[in-house]
């Protein structure tokens, strides 16, 4: 898949709710195909809302979103979503389906049968044993569930991955392992990944580019290296200061 077809472009996107509150306020930004972009900001900064305009879980009030140069509204919404992987904090595995059925749901929607080999391959991709396909979601740990969620999102070989706080509900160890796994998958499959997180450290360590949002606007747009170097501006610096200070204190403890 050519890189341009995986480019995501926001053109003056706004989302206003009744009462005049603007969750997203005139955002224009382009995410290049193949890049790993983190959307960082406090709760209510509009980062999740912006992310969901890509797969039209939220329709913008103004502006438009393009994928590969084509407006997302140009085709039936379910077809659009099948080309875009979506992973979110609460995972939302279907409790009445086995892990295998969950992973293969996208294939099933596309009319494919005999997905056993593909299920095993997808589970392997997220470092889960193939035997797990027969289990039900309620028998899995939180980290395993999110891995299944990622495998499900990857089933139809999407060019784009949208991740909304994917590690939000996980313990730090699982979080770290899964973060690394996601980044490895991103590189290996050549995805365009947009990840929403409120954790600046995570964003700095995983992403190629960090967008900082506040009050519905993008207030900083820089590489992790530039952000650490203090080139991201005041709002970004405040967020970067926290992990930087934590890192220093940890270093002191090490002596």
């Amino acid at each position: 898949m050519p890189e341009q077809s995986r480019t995501v472009t926001f053109k003056n996107v706004s989302k206003r709710y009744a009462g005049g509150v603007a969750a997203v306020d005139g955002v224009s930004v382009e995410v290049a195909g193949g890049s790993f972009v983190a959307l960082v900001g406090a709760s209510g900064s509009g980062k999740s809302t912006l992310l969901k305009t890509v797969n039209r879980l939220i329709e913008p009030s103004e502006g438009e979103v393009l994928v590969g140069g084509v407006a997302v509204g140009a085709e039936p919404v379910h077809l659009l979503r099948r080309r875009i992987g979506y992973v979110f904090q609460n995972v939302g595995l279907f409790p009445h389906m086995t892990v295998g059925e969950n992973v293969a749901i996208g294939l099933r929607l596309a009319g494919e049968k005999d997905n056993a080999a593909r299920i095993a391959e997808l589970l392997d991709l997220v470092e889960l044993p193939a035997e797990m396909a027969a289990r039900f979601p309620d028998a899995l740990s939180g980290g395993q569930r999110q891995r299944v969620g990622v495998a499900r999102a990857l089933a139809c070989a999407p060019g784009i991955m949208l991740m909304d706080e994917p590690f939000g509900a996980l313990d730090p160890v699982t979080r770290d392992a899964l973060g690394k796994a996601i980044r490895a998958l991103h590189d290996r499959l050549g995805l365009t990944t947009i990840m929403v997180t409120h954790d600046m450290a995570e964003a700095l360590l995983l992403a190629d580019r960090v967008l900082v949002m506040a009050g519905g606007k993008i207030v900083a747009d820089a590489t992790p290296r530039d952000l650490i170097a203090g080139k991201g501006g005041a709002a970004a610096d405040a967020l970067v200061a926290v992990p930087r200070e934590q890192a220093h204190r940890l270093k002191e403890l090490e002596g």
Binding site: N55, V77, H78, R82, Y86, F88, N90, G92
Partner: peptide, 12 residues
């Protein structure tokens, strides 16, 4: 569970 419904939409 709203998450399950969101996932159903999300997978298309």
């Amino acid at each position: 569970d709203p998450a399950v419904l969101e996932a159903a939409d999300g997978v298309g």
